[in-house]
Amino acid sequence: MNCAEFERLIDAYLDGELAGSLRVEFDAHRLRCRRCQLTMIAMESVETVLANDRPLATLSDDFTERVMGVIQSRRPVASRLRPRRIVLAAGVLLQAAALMFLAIHPWHENASVSEFEPVPVTPAEPEVVRDLDQVYALVDKKTEERQALVDRIFAKLEAAGMNVATDLTQLVSYASALPVPDDVARASDGMHGANPLNLLIDVFIPGAAPELESTPIGTVEHAL
């Protein structure tokens, strides 16, 4: 082992990582090389001085008391602030809850309650119940709207039906007033029950046909 190799291994030696045959080689060189011996002495001196030399300055005698004083002085501050913070947080939460309550249950504008009257504080209803009420209200509203629509449809249909009945009545009157030859009238007089026009009238306007029946065809004035 030469000096360069020795110097490369100094770190491993100082770290206690040099072992086996390499350690023997290292020691052998150290014994016979004065230069490397001095290098090792220097490094071991560094270790000795760094490990054992006390600093020039020393801590003040009251250092521990000062540290504990700082710690103690900080603790009461923290403990004093903690309840204050809790109260502040609770206040903020209460205000937020009150705002939410007012937003969910707005006061009626025409409420007869005087503003000077104390407002009864009622606990906020659970969210689920409030939602169901809204659903029920919505269903009721939709049902009413649907009923109104149905009523309107029926009214339209009724009005349309009346118009048809009126038109049919006028048609029947017109048809009855048509001048027909006597033989045709007599021949058809017996067929009154099978008159398709009467059947049609019965279908559309129940009860209208009997009124027509009361009018004897034979007596109809056959004139335009």
């Binding site: 100094i10 770190d11 100082l14 001095l38 290098t39 002495i41 220097a42 490094m43 071991e44 001196s45 560094v46 270790e47 000795t48």
Partner: peptide, 25 residues
């Protein structure tokens, strides 16, 4: 360590000093 070794190299040429510190260490 390299820097410390170099810094001390000049000083340790004095064998008397080295010997004293060897015994001290």
């Amino acid at each position: 360590r390299e820097r410390l070794r170099k810094a001390l190299a000049a000083e340790l040429v004095d064998e008397r000093l080295a010997g004293e510190y060897l015994s001290g260490s």
